[in-house]
Design a protein around this nucleic acid. Sequence first.
DNA 1: TTGTACGCGTTATCAC
DNA 2: GTGATAACGCGTACAA
Lengths: 350, 350
Amino acid sequence: MKKTEKPGTLHWLARKAGVSIATISRTLRRPDSVAPQTRQRILALVERHRFVPDGRASTFSSNRSGVIGLIVPTISNSIYAEFTEAIQNRLQAAGLNLLIANANYSAELEREIIRKLIESRVEGVILTGYDRDPGLYQLLRRYKIPFVVTWSISPKPSIPAISFDNYAAATEATELLVKLGHRRIALICGVTAINDRAAQRLAAYRDVLRRYKISFDRALVAEHPFEIEISADATTRLMSLQKPPTAIFCANDIQALGALFTCQRLQFRVPDDVSIIGFDDLPITRVVIPPLSTVHIPAAQMGNAAADALIDAARKGIPVKSRKIDTEIIMRGSTGAPPARVRIRSSSPS
Amino acid sequence: MKKTEKPGTLHWLARKAGVSIATISRTLRRPDSVAPQTRQRILALVERHRFVPDGRASTFSSNRSGVIGLIVPTISNSIYAEFTEAIQNRLQAAGLNLLIANANYSAELEREIIRKLIESRVEGVILTGYDRDPGLYQLLRRYKIPFVVTWSISPKPSIPAISFDNYAAATEATELLVKLGHRRIALICGVTAINDRAAQRLAAYRDVLRRYKISFDRALVAEHPFEIEISADATTRLMSLQKPPTAIFCANDIQALGALFTCQRLQFRVPDDVSIIGFDDLPITRVVIPPLSTVHIPAAQMGNAAADALIDAARKGIPVKSRKIDTEIIMRGSTGAPPARVRIRSSSPS
DNA sequence: TTGTACGCGTTATCAC
DNA sequence: GTGATAACGCGTACAA
């Protein structure tokens, strides 16, 4: 007496249709392998009952989850949106699903996410940055889950990375300011302790200063989360120094915008009194006044490449190969030569 | 001869430990229900072999997927980031996982996503906007998946919504401009055909004009995707009209920023020559010059409420109840009375 | 406290 | 072209 099959399953539908579950399954997966007549009857039934097969069971039985996990450190920076959308499009075309996870700049949370992804046996993982507990990489390998690091070039060859070179890009940006004649250059960047991209950009900044024999001043470096208001406050502090900088390298466009508006609010002209260069090349940098000079990051290109690599890895077993993406300095209106004489500030900022 | 259990499974580990799979499973799920000695031995083994149980199998066997799906129309607007992070935090605290999906303002893509979510038997779905094929709601109900609409109040009581009222908020914003004395008010909003939030805000704008006997001018309405450069172009067109508007209501802060910078670029003073009011209250609105007047949307609060509702629905079977969230007009520096005399533009914008 | 055995819903492999 | 049935890996009632 099995008249009461649980509704919404193949068994149940098979009974209703008077065929075997195999036939239903086939109708759904490879309709051609079923007689047109049978197919029609079954499809009508599927339609009528709004049958949606249990993906967990099928993934489980076929041993293909069909999902790629993407872990981003934040979703509030739209540069990751461009990146994510590129990945999504590529995966969709390949019949894979994207699972987006936000680690919120927390190593702890990222660890949990990676574990969850392994638990659900994703077919690939796209990571942001390389700096994490090596055990996590081992875990991914242990379960034969292909992965790729993005937004950062890994120092270890064993960890495949598809990314631009943060150090090189930041070097270029800092050097540009030096070549414009600046000697007092501030840096606003992310929190290097939890962000290897920020750390690399800071390292580049320091190294350029050293190379040009410019003394490094700790007071000119501000590490902060990527929130525009925090960056604005940091800029206020920077520009209130006895000797304010004549240029600010912001290792992130959000921070650059905070710096730009704050300088203007404090009556510093950009770029006449102070130059600002950003990093990422968000669309808004082209619209603000003056347009922001910045480092263009081909986020979509990087996303495409990472997605393609994982598709090949998941479907054809091709190991992920590291690849470097080019960046480009975009000169717009926020950078120029330093003012001829050191500007003396007459009153404190409000 | 079952010596060669497949590695990375409970069976395999059970054999290694010399216990049954049940004991391993128990050790992992409810450690207390196992003798300390056994537990230690097993945990050591789990640790050593980096064992990660197959979540699909467990979810499948326990019939609890433990995931809530969130579908946002875009991830490039940081207002959704705040929303998403609130949801994520709440769910995490409740032991549920968040699956973020980006529908990219495509009904087609959203349909596929909803189907995928049902396939994976998520325990709840958070939707953005109410306007979609009713069949999708039926499908969710059919599989007893609790859902809630956000960012939009549903006109149908059968569809639970936890949201602010777009129409009311937009009415307030438009009315504010009218009360400041503006009669020539432009609207820049999203594409109403694919965005019910934009449609409601447009409806509010029209109704306010009608109520105040201000004639509706199609030329003053610009529907566009939420990209700052597109909004900038639209503003250029608007401000190049024979009789440019004295105020612009932007149903989105991104578009408001595009409008602000463009007006300034065209030498219109904000708010002296033209007032601008946005919608969302992004952090950047407090930093730009002048600070942008806007409608504050309590995105985090809405996210918390939606998450809580779904947690209760998934865990305690409590049906989701609609709830209205309050918005608030934030007056800052971008709005004021219209100029005394109509400004005559002397040359065409570059 | 621990082990046995069944069920979860699908896919894949054979026979027929 | 179709049906029967053995996996897939885990959770869990029930037995020991």
